[in-house]
C-alpha cells in the first residue's frame, strides 16, 4: 500500500465524521430496549396466550385430570404412589416431598456417588417387600430418579414388573391388569420419537375405576 493510500484511510472519511455521539447512542439504546420489550416481552407472549386459549385451552392450562368434578392431577405430571394397589412411578428428588410440582428438582447424584446405589437398593427392597417371591431384576427406570422429579411415566417393562403385585393386592386377574397396562401404554410419537411409556396416573385412575 502506498503512503498516500494509507493517509487517505487513516484520515476520517465522511462516514466516520457522521458517527453519533455517546449521548445519542445511549438514548437510542434505551429507546430500543423499551420498544423491543413491548414487542417481544408483551405482544409476543400475549399473542401466544390468546392463540392457546382459543385453540388449545385444556393443554395450555396444564392438561388437568378431573374425577367427580375435582382436579386430581395433570396428565403430564407424576404423583407419589406408595400403595401396593397402585403402580409406582420413578423415584423423585423434589423436596420437601416427592413429586412436588411447585418445585421441580433432580437428585444430581453422580454415577459413582454411594448415595445413588443406596437409594436404588432401598427401592429394590421396597418393591420386593411389597411383592414377596418376585426376584426378577428390576427395570432401571424404577430404581432411578427422573430429571424433573415429576416424570409421569414408567417403561412398559417397569409396568410389567409390577403387574403381579397390583393384581394380587386388588384381587384382580393378572390378565385384566395387563390389559389395562396395554391400554395405557403410549407408543413413540409419530412412531419413532422418544420411547414407549406408560402413564402411571392414568393407569392408576383406570384401576381405581375397576
Amino acid at each position: 500500500m502506498s503512503m498516500d493510500a494509507k493517509r487517505s484511510l487513516s484520515s476520517p472519511t465522511p462516514d466516520e465524521e457522521r458517527q453519533p455521539s455517546l449521548g445519542s447512542l445511549l438514548r437510542t439504546a434505551v429507546g430500543m430496549l423499551v420498544a423491543l420489550t413491548l414487542l417481544t416481552g408483551v405482544a409476543y407472549p400475549l399473542l401466544i396466550t390468546a392463540v392457546a386459549k382459543v385453540a388449545f385451552a385444556d393443554r395450555a392450562n396444564g392438561s388437568l385430570v378431573e374425577r367427580d368434578g375435582k382436579v386430581v392431577g395433570s396428565r403430564l405430571i407424576g404423583q407419589a404412589f406408595e400403595d401396593p394397589r397402585h403402580f409406582w412411578g420413578r423415584l423423585s428428588a423434589t423436596s420437601p416431598a416427592a413429586y412436588n410440582a411447585a418445585s421441580s428438582a433432580a437428585s444430581n447424584l453422580g454415577p459413582t456417588n454411594p448415595d445413588l446405589t443406596k437409594k436404588s437398593n432401598e427401592r429394590i427392597d421396597a418393591l420386593r417387600a411389597a411383592d414377596p417371591g418376585n426376584d426378577a431384576p428390576v427395570p432401571v427406570d424404577l430404581v432411578t430418579s427422573s430429571g424433573s422429579g415429576l416424570d409421569p411415566h414408567i417403561s412398559p417393562a417397569a409396568a410389567e414388573y409390577q403387574v403381579r403385585r397390583v393384581a394380587r393386592a386388588r384381587g384382580l386377574g393378572e390378565d385384566r391388569v395387563r390389559a389395562l397396562v396395554r391400554a395405557h401404554t403410549e407408543d413413540r410419537e409419530l412412531g419413532f420419537l422418544g420411547e414407549r411409556h406408560v402413564n402411571v396416573l392414568l393407569l392408576n385412575l383406570a384401576l381405581d375405576r375397576e
Binding site: S107, L109, P111, V140, S146, S155, G194, E195
Partner: peptide, 8 residues
C-alpha cells in the same frame, strides 16, 4: 443410565 433422565 436412567438416573436424571425422563422415560419419555
Amino acid at each position: 443410565n436412567m438416573e436424571g433422565k425422563e422415560v419419555r
